[in-house]
């Protein structure tokens, strides 16, 4: 089993949101709040740093929207490496919770 470093909540939710489909920065921020029942909020500074780092790691890529009128809209998409990173994190969280009553 591959040993991986724990992710920050922001990283985890960004990858989780993108696993549900390509999204733009603000969309990810809104979806994160929804998925976490308002527990996790990702600010713009955190979002910029996290997406920049994840692009460097090759977990996500930047694409541009093909929707009419939104051609210049920046979207993020999950790569295979990103999917692996997310699955590893989900596995790690599950293992941590496995023995909780």
């Amino acid at each position: 089993m591959k040993k991986s470093e724990p992710m920050s909540e922001s990283y985890y939710y960004i990858l989780l949101c993108l696993s549900k489909g390509d999204n733009h920065g603000y969309g990810i921020m809104q979806m994160t709040e929804k998925l976490s029942d308002g527990e996790v909020k990702i600010g713009s500074g955190t979002m910029y740093g996290a997406t920049g780092n994840m692009m460097k790691k090759g977990w996500i890529e930047e694409i541009f929207s093909r929707e009419s009128g939104l051609e210049r809209r920046r979207l993020y998409t999950l790569t295979d490496t990103g999917k692996d990173a997310l699955e590893n994190e989900i596995g790690r969280l599950k293992r941590m919770l496995a023995h909780v009553e």
């Binding site: 920050s8 909020k41 600010g43 713009s44």
Partner: peptide, 12 residues
């Protein structure tokens, strides 16, 4: 108040 934060976790 979290709406007015830009770095929302300790790491960033």
């Amino acid at each position: 108040p979290a709406e007015y934060e830009i770095n929302t976790d300790r790491a960033s």
